[in-house]
Design a binder for these strands. Structure first.
Lengths: 182, 182, 182, 182
DNA sequence: AATGAATGAGTCTTCATTCAT
DNA sequence: AATGAATGAAGACTCATTCAT
């Protein structure tokens, strides 16, 4: 990629990130372009649509999540690994908007996102398989379910106030809920 | 209210309900008015904003939920009552869009909605208090949490496919998750 | 229709007509709205799309064409009537842009346009039928053909210069061409 | 021209031709460049504008038309030659979009196009002159008229359906129309 | 009480053309 | 000679809300 193109791309991402940080998750291409000091066409060239932009914005954060998942998957104690993973993941998706938008999307704009999803799911599956054998979790859970429940719990935290207090509580509900019913 | 006003209001609600049923949850006042055969102004007169319309649309369904909650609250076995309530509630909120939009809202447009929320929360609180005393649930749970978790689990079910299969599974996770950690 | 609505509609048509007269047949809704001193939405309300606006602009001219066709159809001499009709029609469609756009369109935006087309075709068919019986025209011609050939000849006149001189010439070609081959 | 430049030019033409063949006559430089695997700048270098590209695309087809016209001009029977020419020409211009765009253009981007037009007109003039002397055609027709009428008839065929059926019919109208009025 | 026309800012998206690399 | 990123004006269209009728 040409140096100026890379610079523009970075500027756009920077501005978009700032927009997100202000709580505005509309990601409007025109205003991002204006604020970034580039033409709209440039934004469209780099990111053909909102989803592509969102994925680019989240790529780094998603990668950190995947890495943590892989690290957790190496835990000898599968259940402990799963807990570690979910605790990290919940904090991570709550640490700014947008990441669940990627995790929940039925289809991806960028192949690298799909690859990360695959890696993420693989790490979860690894933990689930071992935890399941140890009868530490419900027998019918798959990686997809964990991802969806994670997004669901995030939703429960975001809806309403007192985020800090409820994060830990709802995480506890999730972790306990994954275990086999008594 | 004049008879024709009541008729118009009913028509608007009817059309809006049909729109929702088609999967279109945008509730656009202009198109509802057109389909209902009234002017937009009439829709605005009856429902000053989207939230007011939504609450009106959901009033009946919400009332059924409240009644079920009250019935469940009468269960001698508090935990069983809570389970009964949540199973019903989850199926109920999934049975069409819109109800969680009311349950989640930080503030209500109509006092009757607030009243129903109060009734709902009271029923839940009643169950929680007794279940807590029996050490059948986590000690730190309040009605508000149950509502939020319900919405979160609904979110997890809606995101992704195979709704029927996952409803039961995620409900199981929720119910087990509410119990005290082992 | 409300008085102010009618006024706005008339203004829009007036401006659009002026635009056409300047040789600009793009009929851009934004600029028409601006020039007419109304909001774009108003233009869209009256004319859902370009074709609808075009038809409205041409309605009067089209109606005059239809009337002339009907008058011509009353001519005892069918061939003479056809000639009269085509001479008038060619001059008419050349007297400003847009009318062939309506005549050529495969489908209409407004039912009144379709009705006029039906009337127009009926008049032509009436003449064709009688002229055919008198063996004054080719046996295989239908009203649709006459319409298309009219548009084709108009095209030939418009392409290139010296409109006045060529109109009569190409009209002669058309009229003679409709007669049965020798 | 450098070998790679020639190769690029050929690629661009090839792609543009394929685009035309799909029925898309917009000839957008960016997409042609992308599909041809070259930069837009390269397309602009070879073809400064749409008209230049169109003429280059049509050069071969136009040349075939000119050759046929010249062959027809050699016919001893001038009227027969004219008919042969027009029958061929109509089929030819209908056999894909673009050629009338060149024939109709008031000015040419490439001198070779102008040269071909001259040749074409010369052949037609030759036929017209002889046919006129034999009183087989209208006395006031020039090559330019024949070209314009050809485009007009093509227009009549393209507008509307059933191309095959109407081609022969409208050709008949044209041929008969060129003859002197009875 | 009802109407529904009007508003017009706002958003998306395209594409011809240039020019720095 | 080639590249292709960037431009940004331009145009299409929507929709929440108001207010004159």
């Amino acid at each position: 990629m040409r140096a100026d193109a890379a610079r523009n791309r970075a500027r756009v991402l920077q501005i978009a990130r700032e927009q997100l940080a202000t709580g505005d998750d509309s990601l409007m291409f025109n205003s991002i372009a204006r604020l970034a000091g580039v033409g709209v066409g440039t934004v469209y060239r780099h990111f053909p649509n909102r989803q592509a932009l969102l994925e680019a914005l989240m790529a780094e954060r998603f990668q950190r999540l995947v890495s943590e998942a892989q690290a957790a998957a190496a835990d000898e104690d599968a259940l402990a690994g799963l807990h570690r993973l979910l605790r990290y993941a919940l904090g991570h998706v709550l640490d700014g908007p947008g990441l669940t938008g990627v995790l929940e999307a039925a289809s991806d704009a960028d192949a690298r996102t799909s690859a990360m999803k695959t890696d993420f799911d693989r790490a979860i599956t690894e933990l689930l398989d071992r935890a399941r054998q140890a009868e530490a979790i419900r027998p019918d859970l798959e990686a997809d379910d964990v991802r969806r429940l994670l997004c669901g719990i995030e939703h429960a935290v975001r809806v309403g106030e007192d985020r800090a207090r409820h994060t830990e509580l709802y995480l506890g509900v999730l972790l306990e809920g994954l275990r086999p019913p008594r």
